[in-house]
Nucleic acid binder design. Structure first.
Lengths: 341, 341
DNA sequence: TCTGGCGCGGCAAGCGATTGCCAAATATTG
DNA sequence: CAATATTTGGCAATCGCTTGCCGCGCCAGA
């Protein structure tokens, strides 16, 4: 027998097992594994070998407890079933993993309370937080970012680094598009009252329509769900508008369904423009004209901003704000105003 | 001053802070909080008060380290962006939260290696695992369930409790439906080779078509993604079939898009049936006839099976297998065979 | 030859909880 | 009222790892 027997793998090996087998102290093992330069290459090599042999996996619990770092980043989203957040989830997941972090996904169910509560409860279990479309008030957000490393997505804040998707500027494009099709009476279909994006989108809409002297109306707020589309569609039709800019694609697709039910043709009787270009926007019927957003990329940027906050050493660019460009993607849900005919 | 000053909240309060302020030992605080019956109601009340006052949140790290339980359940999915898994994510998230667990989401990128690796790396950081559509081999799965508490979804296993969505039995219905529409040449569009569901669906298809004496063909495997739809559609058309049963809706919707591009009408020239009834299946064009699955419910059942495994005391029914019923939902993507005309 | 500096490992003190064991206080019983 | 149970709360050992501090051995400069 060349090798001493490896003890039976009854319970997962600890750092001590590795230390004993390698004939060094646990501190050396610890350093060899997480601070390689601190130990002699020969020793390190040996330790790595033994660790591999024993199939050693450090306990993140213990590591976190003693070091204070958990290597976990929490992602808080208002609604995991909203496809908009799928791309966020995917983007952060990918980047975090690449950086050696684990993602903790939390659904705050569109509730500021749950969001705050989650933030509070997890204070010890996460190193940082990504707040997607946070529903927190400015005050809550300020308070939170005083205590935690936070990056927000689509929710500006003076206190936390932010990545915003610049949908408002494309709303100008969208209105240009509608105007060129002859629409003069346009309705804004609003999303959740507590949504910062919604406020921004509305503002851009309002400003631009005023400049252009278009007749406008606003309906809402509606929950950003497919099922809210029915009420939204009915309300929008009632305003007499010939075109709608809708808070997001989910709602817009819901409207599409309802309009069809009511026998209204899109875009012949009504044009619809959504926001975000989520999964489904391209294959719904008709395909949705929408404001395309680099959602996944935004998520990645958010991660990198957070990481540079967590590890200031590596001197990543310390941006406080990233603005992601957007553009109008014209598909089948917009067409000439029926008034023109 | 009635109350002694609360120390400034410089660092989060620990159990010791609470103990001191309440005038008891840390052990008592620990018990009061996690094993209420073990301490006198009066003492407990007092401790609860102090804890609330101090805004005490126990460190899950420390708790996990000393107790061995983490209150974390990991959910492993092959692809977080597949809408099928959205419902799984949502369902488990909801149930786990209700039971006081935290969900750790892991995307295994359709890779058995990543799946196994994740399972291994997290051995210490999760109490249990839910494997959705696991790509592991039987051997890997057996090995894994020997070491961990595992429940699988849509992946039968002799070793781990399983919840399966009984899509195969509805495939019989689907074929009945197609046959009644006059289709006699039907193509099965296959999903990932390592997918257990795919194998089951194929088997059901094969058995039933043989019984019915239908002409069949099979194409694939294809990745279960929208973008694979193009290749799948082309291949299916090439077989001369007039109807397809497709591994899942994602692929089916992708095929719909491609068929339209090629100028083929659905269902006039080709009927398509998907599986799962995911988000989007009802609003794509044409709306997809599909085998509806209670996905979210399946996820919930999986959680309850896992929890009863983790806390055997509470004597939940210890099912090893749950079969979720499915049914055919007929929408616009199926119609009479063109051959009949 | 002496000494300061450096590279490398070990010692041991935590990190913040849980929990087995024990003792004091209180309740129960004959 | 003595003797025995039962509560109730404290002590202290752990859980597995990190990290500040110390010291040994070796090399270079004086």
């Amino acid at each position: 027998m060349a090798d001493p027997q490896i003890p039976p793998p009854t319970r997962p090996p600890t750092i001590r097992d590795v230390a004993e087998r390698a004939g060094v102290a646990t501190s050396t093992v610890s350093r060899a594994l997480s601070n390689p330069d601190r130990v002699n290459p020969v020793t390190r090599r040996k330790i790595e070998l033994v660790a591999a042999e024993l199939n050693y996996v450090p306990s993140s619990q213990a590591r976190g407890l003693s070091s204070g770092r958990t290597q976990v980043v929490a992602l808080l989203v208002p609604d995991v079933t909203n496809p908009f957040f799928f791309d966020i989830i995917r983007g952060t997941q990918y980047e975090l993993r690449a950086a050696g972090y684990t993602q903790l996904l939390v659904d705050t169910e569109e509730s500021p309370e749950m969001e705050e509560d989650a933030l509070h409860k997890m204070q010890r279990s996460a190193d940082g937080y990504i707040l997607a479309a946070s529903r927190l008030t400015d005050a809550q957000l300020a308070e939170a970012s005083a205590h935690h490393a936070i990056v927000t997505i689509n929710r500006a804040s003076a206190n936390a680094p932010t990545v915003v998707i610049d949908t408002p500027s494309a709303i100008v494009q969208a209105l240009e598009h509608l105007a060129s099709l002859g629409h003069t009476n346009i309705c804004f279909v609003g999303g959740p009252a507590s949504s910062w994006s919604n406020a921004m989108r509305w503002k851009a809409f309002e400003d631009e329509t005023r400049v252009r002297g278009l007749a406008t109306s606003r309906v809402g707020p509606f929950a950003p769900k497919l099922t809210s589309g029915a009420a939204a569609a009915d309300a929008a039709v009632h305003t007499g508008a010939t075109a709608c800019i809708v808070f997001n694609d989910l709602l817009a697709i819901g409207m599409l369904q309802r309009l069809r039910e009511r026998g209204m043709r899109v875009p012949d009787d009504m044009s619809i423009i959504g926001c975000d270009d989520i999964f489904g926007a391209d294959f719904c019927n008709p395909p949705l004209t929408t404001i395309a957003s680099p959602i996944e990329q935004a998520a990645r940027v958010a991660v990198s901003m957070l990481l540079s906050q967590l590890n200031p050493l590596q001197g990543g660019t310390k941006r406080r704000l990233a603005v992601m460009p957007t553009h109008l993607t014209v598909r089948g849900s917009t067409g000439p105003s029926p008034r023109q005919l």
